[in-house]
C-alpha cells in the first residue's frame, strides 16, 4: 500500500515512517518535506496515487490547507482511491472543524500517531476494499 508522508519536520517524518514500518502498515512509504513537492508528484504520476497521505498542517510556503485546496481540481480522480489523514500537533478545535469540510480528508490524528491508530486506519481501509 503506497503511502505519502508530508511534513516539513524531518524528525516527524522519520518517526511516523518507523512506526508505520513496525506496524507493517505499508511497504512503500514516500516522505516529502514540502507540500509543493508532494503536489507536483501527485500531478505528474496519476498511476502512482497513494492509498494514504499523512498531511501536516503547519508548514512554510504551502501549508496543509493550501495543499488540500490545490488538490480540489483532482478530487474526482482521487476520490475512493486516496485517503488523506491530517497529522498535526495542533489541538485547536477550529482545525478539527475545518478538516471535516474537505471530502478527501478521512480523519484528523494528533501527533504522535500510535499503533492503535495505525491499526484502526488499516482496518478502515480494508473495509472499504482499498487495500
Amino acid at each position: 500500500m503506497k503511502t505519502f508522508l508530508i511534513d516539513d519536520d524531518n524528525l516527524g517524518n522519520y518517526l511516523t515512517e518507523q512506526l508505520l514500518r513496525i506496524e507493517g502498515f505499508s511497504n512503500t512509504i514516500q516522505t516529502f518535506e514540502s507540500a509543493q513537492e508532494a503536489l507536483e508528484t501527485l500531478q505528474q504520476c496519476a498511476t502512482e496515487t497513494p492509498a494514504v497521505i499523512f498531511l501536516d498542517l503547519n508548514m512554510p510556503i504551502m501549508n496543509g490547507w493550501q495543499f488540500l485546496d490545490a488538490l480540489v481540481p483532482y478530487e474526482s480522480r482521487l476520490r475512493g482511491r486516496c485517503r488523506i489523514f491530517v497529522l498535526t500537533s495542533s489541538l485547536a478545535l477550529a482545525d478539527m472543524e475545518k478538516a471535516k469540510t474537505y471530502d478527501l480528508v478521512a480523519g484528523l490524528i494528533h501527533k504522535p500517531i500510535d499503533s492503535e491508530e495505525i491499526q484502526a486506519i488499516r482496518s478502515q481501509l480494508e473495509d472499504e476494499d482499498i487495500v
Binding site: 495542533s90 489541538l91 500510535d114
Partner: peptide, 18 residues
C-alpha cells in the same frame, strides 16, 4: 502552544514509544 510547543513534545513522546 498548540503548534510549536507541542510539535517537539509530540515527537519526543513518539520516539519514546518507538
Amino acid at each position: 502552544v498548540s503548534h510549536n510547543l507541542r510539535a517537539p513534545l509530540a515527537n519526543a513522546r513518539g520516539y519514546a514509544q518507538l
